[in-house]
């Protein structure tokens, strides 16, 4: 019993220590924000890596997300809801929830793991120490560009994801569910609110920051060679995914008060 309490206490202390370290890193990233202009080339490179190179993955996941949403919405609605509301239901689901959340989760898998693995490898091979010896702040040089690129590129990816998902939904609705294009878009327009799209983009900014930050934090705190890099990569993806879902809920409760 005493051992269990001791272990629990130690785990709590470890968690607090991690939280404190993470907050300190976040503070250092924000303190480095005035150096954004100087880091423009690095930010641009990361925008390409996080954004442009994620597009094919976002395309595939979004098209099928839209397609399956349309298919299953029709299955659930066909007996008691007029089909004009299929477009309404699909667009609301995609703009508010599925676009930002699923895009963030797949980007967390691709980009969060990549950032953690890259920075983790740099940590265990002394490349981060080498940066320090060259009088270059690793937070400014490595974390800031990734964080800023995450904040900028996730909303852009979500705009693409919304577009691809709606395209997938339209194809399924018109080609497989015998709903006309006009009916589908009429349904989208009836209850369209700009707030829905904006809420999705606000979420995307937060998700982009979470993905990049978790990758950087677990990358910088990597210890112990290849095994450590592997563990950091897993932690970056797991913590990003969990935080994305929690943040999703918190933002939804703030923006959509009942």
């Amino acid at each position: 019993m005493a051992d269990d309490v001791f272990i629990l206490g130690r785990r709590c202390l470890n968690a607090l220590e991690h939280f404190g370290e993470a907050m300190m890193l976040l503070a250092r990233i924000f303190r480095a924000f005035p150096m954004i202009v100087r880091s423009f080339r690095l930010i641009f490179n990361q925008m390409m890596e996080i954004g442009i190179r994620s597009l094919p993955l976002v395309f595939i996941t979004s098209v099928f997300t839209g397609a399956v949403t349309a298919w299953q919405a029709e299955y659930q609605m066909k007996e008691y809801v007029p089909m004009i509301f299929l477009g309404t239901g699909v667009s609301k689901a995609v703009f508010i929830e599925l676009g930002p959340a699923l895009t963030a989760l797949v980007v967390a898998g691709r980009v969060g793991s990549s950032i953690a693995a890259e920075l983790g490898t740099m940590q265990v091979t002394e490349q981060i120490d080498a940066l320090e010896t060259l009088a270059i702040d690793p937070v400014r040089f490595l974390a800031l560009p990734r964080f800023v690129a995450g904040l900028i590129m996730l909303p852009i990816l979500v705009i693409f994801a919304d577009f691809f998902a709606m395209a997938g939904a339209v194809v399924v609705a018109t080609q497989l569910l015998s709903i006309t294009t006009a009916t589908f878009w009429e349904g989208v327009k009836i209850f369209f609110h700009v707030l829905d799209v904006m809420a999705g983009l606000v979420k995307a900014v937060a998700f982009g920051g979470i993905i990049a930050f978790m990758g950087c934090y677990f990358g910088f705190t990597t210890r112990g060679g290849a095994e450590g890099v592997g563990k950091s990569t897993i932690k970056a993806v797991v913590f990003s995914s969990v935080l994305i879902l929690i943040t999703d809920y918190l933002i939804a409760t703030l923006l959509f008060r009942v």
Binding site: E118, M122, T125, E126, Q127, D129, A130, L131, E132, T133, L134, A135, I136, D137
Partner: peptide
Amino acid sequence: SKRELFELRKRFGMLFQGAALFDS
């Protein structure tokens, strides 16, 4: 401070055991 250390390190060069070259 960290800032003073960065200034100081401009006067230093260091070769690491594994060279620690930036592989990107």
